[in-house]
């Protein structure tokens, strides 16, 4: 029982950065823009968040500035793809390469430094209930924030007028434009939001999860977040499920290493990546389902003709 609690709690911990980044990217993609630069925005968020939290002794300040940094990176992407009409796939790759270099440059001073642990929620009595207590009432604040974001995004996309407009732009930008909606402005904002969320996800890694800075510490999580959006078939609720499933995979391998399972640790470390591929294959196999659920204008450049 104790072991199970430990696994589930750490599953939630490792799923949270994926959930933050993926829910931001989901909004971006719903507006019809494919930003493959999640990894680059996350890693910049990680280094900036760590630097600010280290300098100010405030994790909150670290998260806030990391979100701004992620949004600035996303702004670069938005200018190139929405104004200069550059290829979205290539620009996203460029953003990742740039982000990895920039973060390594900025992070030089922070290597080897650590941050104090971030406090967990503790309600006397309730948080001590076996399993449910630590799992639901004993997490750090960002876990609740990430779940709140998913709920808010689900509500925004399906229940608000503005969310409907955003989705319509993602489905058919020419029709939305003809109806008078500001396609470029809304897409710009959606990309910025995605960047800010990626920044938060990165900062979570460096401020809460590890908590230290190492070069390239995102280790592919930005790409896994992108795969999660496909996995969710662009539905926020399924993102929640997908992120925790992945959290489970990455934690299961750590625990297996702890149990001295007779498999080399390198092979166990492959699990999250292999699981990503497997899940992608299972979801994508049904081409029709992907076609029906993916925003129809995803990745297509928009140029106002009139």
């Amino acid at each position: 029982m104790h072991e199970l609690t430990a696994i589930l709690v750490s599953m939630v911990l490792s799923a949270t950065p994926l959930l933050l980044a993926a829910s931001g990217e989901l909004v971006t993609e719903k507006s019809g823009v494919l930003n493959l630069g999640v990894e680059g925005m996350m890693v910049v968020g990680a280094v900036v968040g760590f630097g600010v939290a280290f300098g100010t002794d405030s994790a909150i300040a670290g998260f806030a500035v990391a979100a701004i940094a992620g949004a600035l990176m996303a702004a670069l992407f938005a200018v190139l793809t929405l104004i200069f009409l550059a290829n979205q796939v290539a620009t996203g790759l460029a953003l990742t390469i740039f982000g990895l270099g920039l973060s390594a440059l900025m992070g030089k001073a922070y290597i080897g430094k650590t941050l104090p642990p971030v406090p967990h929620l503790h309600i006397p009595g309730i948080s001590d209930i076996p399993l449910v207590g630590p799992l639901i009432f004993g997490e750090n604040a960002m876990v609740y924030v990430s779940v709140a974001f998913v709920i808010a995004i689900a509500w925004y996309l399906s229940r608000t007028r503005s969310g409907l407009v955003l989705r319509s732009i993602g489905e058919n930008h020419d029709a939305a434009h003809a109806l008078g909606y500001p396609v470029r402005r809304i897409r710009f904002l959606a990309v910025l939001f995605g960047g800010a969320m990626s920044g938060l996800g990165g900062a979570y890694l460096s401020i809460v999860y590890t908590p230290l800075w190492t070069e390239g510490m995102t280790a592919g999580r930005g790409w896994i977040a992108l795969a999660l959006v496909v996995f969710s078939t662009w539905k926020p609720w399924r993102l929640l499920f997908g992120a925790y499933l992945f959290g489970f995979f990455s934690i299961a391998q750590l625990h297996a290493q702890g149990f001295a399972v007779p498999i080399a640790p390198e092979f166990l470390s492959m699990l999250p990546y292999l699981a990503t591929i497997l899940v992608l294959v299972i979801i994508s196999r049904d081409a029709k389902r992907i076609r029906l659920n993916a925003p129809a204008a995803l990745g297509k450049a928009f140029r106002a003709t009139a």
Binding site: A94, G99, G101, L102, L105
Partner: peptide, 8 residues
Amino acid sequence: AVVGVFQG
């Protein structure tokens, strides 16, 4: 890391 920044 400067090289990565240039390349990006």
